[in-house]
Nucleic acid binder design. Structure first.
Lengths: 213, 213
DNA sequence: CGGGATCCTTGACGATACTG
DNA sequence: CAGTATCGTCAAGGATCCCG
């Protein structure tokens, strides 16, 4: 069960803090509602996931049990192995997923006490090429429509450099110097971003054994 | 691929030292030849397994690549999780598999310089209730027919105490005292067995969180 | 022994529609 | 929104036979 199709992804999403059905679904593109429903039900039977009634009355929220949390070492071992040995594939370039991961990995204690909006422009895409990362005292969010707030930073790059940066395979400083990434905004915001809000992948420290060209 | 049905078992068998098609198959009961063949082919494409021509000319032997060996942390994390949280199931009681694991886990350097044959009698079974563990300078083997050599030790127990002992959930001393396990043979052999040839599970040190009744 | 080729069944899954 | 129910499809894989 733990290794069945999509379950590792679902558990990762729960570990990352997803709680509702659609949050889990959004962070698992390609997964159908039918299958997610079936998996969650099965994970509940296996005591890995617990359901709680939503305050709103409609639907439930999903949470890992102690048993489920303890799957983290398994997922970490898988992630480390993948980072070390697998090439960067097309599917890892999905900017929404990269930014989703970025948003989840910014430490709560590093969140600003005011709202910050960072726009990401993907120069190699023609549609769905603009995303917004919102950092607020209460949480972090990624959306692909203008959130209606002023933008504090604008991050311009292509999908591949974005993924490589997040995976720690290019340093942000070098990428800025080489023009792979551009960052616009006030000096103060840039500094905050570079020091606190990078949200590097959990496996950014893993040294790949194979050259991904 | 790494998490596809049976692949973790296949990789575990390769890590344990299986090299031929049938060795892998024997240690994965329930796995069909068709599927093992397909999996090995796929693992080869993924550079996890390497084939080598057999000296005999017929068939090949299968070996893990560096990439494959590096899956060990993943399997270890899975095994630890399972030992900690999952109940002992019927399938884990299979005495052949338990003894297979025992044989693989006896350190080469602890192997005797002469042949030792240990017979295991399963008191709760009526057929296929007798196995032989053979320890030789050149290797270890389990069979379910009399190997034609004298027996040095006779280990009498039921399947469940056998599994519990191997998993480290009952100490051999306590099991002997309680009569769950009987051991017959010369005092010297018994001493060797108890000190060197127990071949406890790799997860025998993991403390289960749940009570398996 | 050491597998490969075929055939045929099953069940896993996606699409769609539905419900409170 | 937050899922559930139904149905059709396709591919994964088991059984069987085959071959050197």
């Amino acid at each position: 069960m733990v290794t069945a199709r999509w379950t590792p992804i679902i558990v990762r999403n729960l570990l990352a803090g997803c709680t509702t059905f659609n949050e889990i679904l959004d962070a698992a593109p390609g997964l159908s509602k039918t299958l997610l429903s079936e998996r969650l039900k099965r994970l509940e039977r296996y005591k890995i996931v617990e359901l709680r009634a939503k305050p709103s009355g409609r639907g439930s929220t999903y949470h890992l049990s102690p048993l489920g949390f303890d799957l983290w070492p398994v997922l970490e071992a898988m992630g480390t192995w993948g980072s070390r040995w697998l090439d960067l594939e097309e599917e890892h370039l999905n900017p929404y997923l990269v930014l989703w991961d970025v948003s989840k990995l910014i430490d709560v204690k590093d969140l600003p006490d005011h709202r910050v909006v960072i726009r990401f422009d993907l120069t190699d895409l023609t549609k769905r090429n603009r995303f917004w990362l919102m950092l607020e005292p209460t949480g972090r969010e990624v959306c692909d429509k203008h959130p209606g707030f002023d933008e504090d930073l604008i991050f311009t790059t292509a999908t591949r450099p974005l993924a490589l940066w997040h995976l720690g395979r290019v340093a942000i400083g070098a990428a800025l110097r080489d023009g792979l990434i551009q960052l616009e905004g006030s000096a103060a915001m840039k500094k905050e971003f570079l020091s606190k809000w990078q949200g590097l992948s959990m496996f950014a420290h893993v040294k790949p054994e194979l050259q991904s060209h």
